[in-house]
Structure formats: C-alpha cells, structure tokens
Design a protein around this nucleic acid. Structure first.
Lengths: 352, 352
DNA sequence: CGACATATTGAATTTAGTCAATACTAGTGG
DNA sequence: CCACTAGTATTGACTAAATTCAATATGTCG
C-alpha cells in the first residue's frame, strides 16, 4: 500500500519542490495552497501524514492542527510542521499542541524523506499496538531490548547471589532497586495478620520483580524469597524510572505488561471468590503446568504443597485431599519429584 | 539549589561562549576540552545536565554518551548534543543512542537557555515521579488534562445516554471505544459459569472504563450496566491509543494508574482468600463509605444487597446476616435509603 | 393498588478449616 | 554410607463457617 501524504504550503515553488521529492520517494501526494483547503482535503481524504507550513495567510499551521485534532478521524494523523529557521523557537510550543515533528527550511530531500518515514513507521507501530501481546516479563524484556540500551543498563550493574531460603526483600522495607532474575526461582508472597502466606507470584529466569512499590511510592507490600539458589541483577530506581518513562516504546510495552497483570489479578479474584476448592486446585494445576511447559518443556509440576496451597488460597490439608481425589480419579499422578497431568480434558472439566 | 552543567567542547572559543551564556543564566558551569576529560568530570561531579559536541578528537560525542550511559550514576543525566548544521542527519541516530535533545550550531543564547531549561524541568518531573500518586480515574483525567488536548478529544465525541438497567457493554463483545462517564453510576461485573456475578467496580462521574480489553487485545471480560440513568462519552480506540502512547506525561500517569489498580487487586485477592466473611464485609463497608464520602461528602452508603454481596464475594444471605450483626452491635445503622457507619473504629477493629 | 423484585430470617446441609497423629524426605554430621 | 533430625506431607476426626433452600416480609414502579 502506498502512503498518502498531504502537503499544506502557500509558497507554490516550495510546494512543488516538496511534492516532487515525495513522489520520488514513492508516496501519493495531495497538495493544498492554504490552511482552509488543507483542512478540507484532510477531512475528505484522510491522508496517512500531513506536512504543514506554519506561516500562512488566513489560516496558519497552528490553526490547521487545532481544527484537525478536534475531529477523531483526523486527530490521529501524524502532523509535521515546516518552519523557517527564524521561527524555530515557536516550534517547541507547536510540538506541545500535538505536532509530531518539525522540519526547518531549508532542508534537503534526504532529511525530508527520513523524517516522513520515521513518523509513518511510528504510526504503523502504534496501529499494531492492539494486535500483539506481551505474555510475560521475558517477552517484555525481549521486546524492549531492541528499543533501548536495556541490556547495557544491566551489564554493569551490581548483581547479587542469594541462596535458597534467603530473602530478596521483605514486606515493609523501602524499595531502592528493581530486580531482574538472572537465573533461579523466586517466590513473592503477602502475609495476613494471622501469619498466613498468600503467594502472589513465582518468578523464574528473566523476570522482573519489585517495581510495583516504586510506581506506587509505597514500601514493599510483599516478601520475596529464593526457592533455590539464584542470581539477581539490580537496577537503581532512578534508572528504572528513566527507562520506563523516557522511552516511548518501553512505556508502551510496560503499560501492556501492567494491563496483563491486572487482567490476571481480576480473573484470579473471580475464581477465588466463587469457585470451590476443587475447581481452584484444578485451575492452579493447569496454570502451573502451562507455565512449566512454556518455559522449558517440562511436564512435571514441582512445587511444595504449602506454596501451592497458598496460591490456591486454602489450607494445605484441603489441597492435599483434593490432589488425592484427582489421583484416585486418574486425572494426575504424583511422584516424589512432582505432579504430572494425565487427563487434561477432565481436569479442565472440573473447573468449568 | 543551582544546577550544575557540564560543557564538553574542543573549540576553546565556543566553549567559553557557551559557559558565559550559562553563567548568565545562573548555572554552575564545568568545562572539558575533550571527551576523555568530560567523562572524568561527569563521573566525578555528577552534573545535572551535559552539553556535548559531537565532533571531537580522541573520544567523540557518541563515545562520551556511550560510556556515561553504562554507569548508572551518570546514565540518568540529561544529555544534549551540540552539532554543526552539516552533521544534522547524524543526530537523529544520536537521539536513538539516548541523547535527550540536540542544538545545532550556530545558535543564539536564548535558544540554548530554553533547551537547557526544558531538559532540566523534564528531569525534575521525572524525579518527582515517585513522589506523587494517582488515586483514581478522576485524578488521572485531571492530571492529564493539563498535558494534552484531553478535553478537546472528548468535546466533539459522540455521547450516549443510557437508562437504568441498560447495558453499556457485555462480556464477550468486541471493544471499539473507551467510555468516559459524564454523569451517572455504572457497575461492572464478571459472571461465573454458574451465573454468579462478581462486581469488579462501581464507577461514577468522571470515571474511565472499558480500556483494559483494548490494551490486552481481547474482547470484554466484563459487563457494564447502568445503575441509574447515565450519560457517557465515547472515545474511539485509535484516539485512545494515540493519547495514551504518544504523550509522555500521559503514558506516565497511565502507568501509575494501572499500577494502582493492580496493587488494589492484589490486596483484595489476599483479603478474599483468607478473611472470613465478617471481616470482608467490614472492609467493603469502609471502602464504599470512603468512596462515597470522597466523591460528594455523602456519609450514607446506598447499594443493593445483591451488588454488595457480589463485591464481598459471598451469598446475599450471608452478607445480610453479617450486616444485621453489625447493626445489633451498634456499629452501623440501616435505613431504607442506605447504611451509615456509627463506629468506624470498631468496624476497623473487626477487619484486623 | 397489585405484581414483581428485593430483603430478611430460619433450618438444614455442605464445605473447608483446625487440630492431632503418623509417615515421609532431604540434608547433616559422624 | 548411614542414622538422625527437622521440616514436609498425608490422613483422620471434629468443628466452625458459610452456602443453599425455603418461607416470609418489605419495597418499588407502573
């Protein structure tokens, strides 16, 4: 598909020049000699990008931008200002109005094409926002690596080895770093007043933990403990904040990550509120199984009964009875090194 | 506090000129005549901002940026490139490396000061990121209004009046818009397989609903129904995505909003998993009371027993018995138009 | 006013939690 | 390499809590 670009410029020579360059770049070009015409054309044709001079008689560039950004149909179109060097200072304010970029005259063809291409690509990325999905932290890290010096930020970080049963952080402490699990297995949980644990997450290599209290400006609400010897890297909170908030693409991925977590939490809430223990156990088994398989193709779920019961949100004994039932019904097998699912279908059945 | 600025520039005249301008602008200035010196000074003094020429003998500007962005102590410092007009094209790549802005030579004093000030302000904003808090959607909308044409985007939107008991959207439908509640009261809930409702939220004027499935690229996971005649405005999903992802400040606030929701959901998860009904009812009463009071100074909680039971996650009868208990213990009063809390202290006591 | 929905109360039943005893396992030191 | 010990897991018996079913009361809206 060829992109359609609208050029709004009162100077005829300049207009022809720009149109020529863009056509060479294999774009469809529409031109308008003044702001009013430009607005009309934009509304009619909905171009993929708009180049617009600022200084024009009748309706100037700011006005055009103002009008177009009111109409949802045109508000989304990337908008680039063309400006003479002298007006440069004004442009910074123009950007505030919603322009995406600006080009100062005089410019050469390659610069024009580069800016146009960049904005089109950015818009394309934005369109695909709803089309792809971050499934977990690994994915997030992978995706963002290409957009930033993410890896670099970690390379020279302090890293910390923690042994089985050691705490990474504890409820109530003040957060100073975000942790990235180099390798290992770490459990996060919350504690009730009467001392019961509720496991909020099990995290493995490549996961990213402890950022929520930073965003919320609170102390840790949960405790993190190593289930096996692990190594984590630490990113100072300033660096993290910079990373998350400065880079547009990282922000985006991070939003999707949070949205995912939120959706999961809400789903779990529904389950825990209304499903009897048997169904919650079945669901938890399936979830743990999928996680294990996804990670390393391992089919065996190996987790302590205590931890599993505190994921399900029940007493260890209740969990155990339910697992014994499942075993008797030949839905799972239990050996000393883990649980294996025999009849996925039926197990899913008991959760529906 | 005076800001400390490091200028790295090999040309002595230019260096003196820049330093002069900055000193006039009431900044503390450090200067370095080449890249190596610059790096050393940056690490030693940790300035608040760095201005750096690109073309320098020995270690060029890119190199300086590269080295400094590896060290967490200096990675966060705003970095501005100084570049001659001819090199302009290179700069767009430099920005990709992590530079925050660039200034093309020749420039005048006012431009230099404007850019420096802008970056310092931005950095300041970033630092305060962890110091303020988005409490709810209203807050988010209020905060973001000043950074974007948020209001404008809604002004000309379609708006929709829905009557009591009408559905705004239903589980399984495909989302096309985000809704903003102009006025009214809307309940969102999920349904279990056996038809039980679980209320995920009650939303009033100024709230913003239905965005999660857009971020997740799924259909609606919940149903929204009007509890009273309401009016909502609709924002097309493209416009929403643009708003959220394009403007840095909006992204930031949105991340904080999601983080807040996530933390709430996790907290609620813990409560529901391990607190007996009595305590959950007490907590829910307090939460509903605070919401009502926060909004309009109303002390009376007016909600149907059915809805409240499905927030608490229990059977209506159980809720009712608990409320009756609270009434007998003189912790609350119940009249036909709502519940009023009499003894907040004791009620809090029963949830701890 | 009536029909329909929502609230309240009672009694029976089910579920899951607690307490207690016993079996198992992994890790430790001789 | 084995025995010992401390933590885990399993099973049973009992109990508390909360749900369900059912009946009655109250409120709401045309």
């Amino acid at each position: 598909m060829r992109y359609k670009i609208l050029v709004i410029e009162d100077n005829a020579a300049m207009r022809a020049n720009i149109a020529g360059i863009l056509e060479l770049g294999d774009y469809d070009v529409l031109t308008a000699a003044n702001g009013k015409l430009g607005v009309a054309l934009a509304q009619q044709h909905q171009p993929d990008l708009i180049l617009c001079d600022i200084m024009m008689p009748e309706l100037d560039g700011y006005g055009v931008l103002h009008i177009l950004s009111k109409d949802p149909k045109t508000a989304v179109i990337p908008f680039i200002f063309l400006t003479a060097k002298a007006e440069k200072s004004d442009v910074r304010e123009g950007m505030g109005l919603g322009a995406n970029d600006y080009i100062t005259k005089p410019f050469d063809g390659s610069e024009l094409l580069r800016v146009v291409e960049l904005q089109l690509k950015r818009q394309e990325l934005l369109k695909t926002t709803f089309a792809n999905d971050v499934k977990n932290f690994d994915d997030f890290v992978d995706r963002t690596k290409q957009f930033t010096d993410f890896g670099k930020l970690y390379e020279h970080q302090r890293s910390k080895k923690i042994r089985k049963r050691d705490f990474l952080f504890m409820e109530g402490e003040e957060p100073n770093d975000v942790f990235y699990i180099q390798h290992g297995h770490i459990k996060t949980y919350r504690t009730t007043r009467d001392g019961k644990e509720f496991v909020t997450g099990l995290h493995r290599d490549g996961a990213f933990i402890g950022f929520l209290p930073l965003l919320e400006h609170t102390n840790y609400q949960e405790t993190a403990v190593a289930l096996e010897d692990s190594e984590v890297r630490m990113m100072p909170k300033d660096v993290f904040s910079n990373l998350i908030f400065t880079n547009r693409e990282v922000s985006r991925q991070f939003i999707r990550l949070l949205a995912n977590d939120l959706a999961d939490a809400e789903k779990r809430l529904l389950e825990i509120a209304y499903q009897p223990v048997r169904q919650r156990v079945a669901l938890t088994l399936l979830r743990l199984h999928d996680q294990a398989e996804l990670r390393k193709g391992i089919k065996r779920i190996s987790i302590s009964r205590k931890d599993m019961s505190s994921i399900v949100g029940t007493a260890t004994e209740s969990l155990n009875r339910t697992l014994a039932d499942f075993r008797d019904e030949k839905l799972i097998t239990m050996t000393h090194d883990g649980i294996e699912i025999l009849d996925r279908g039926k197990l899913e059945g008991s959760s529906r």
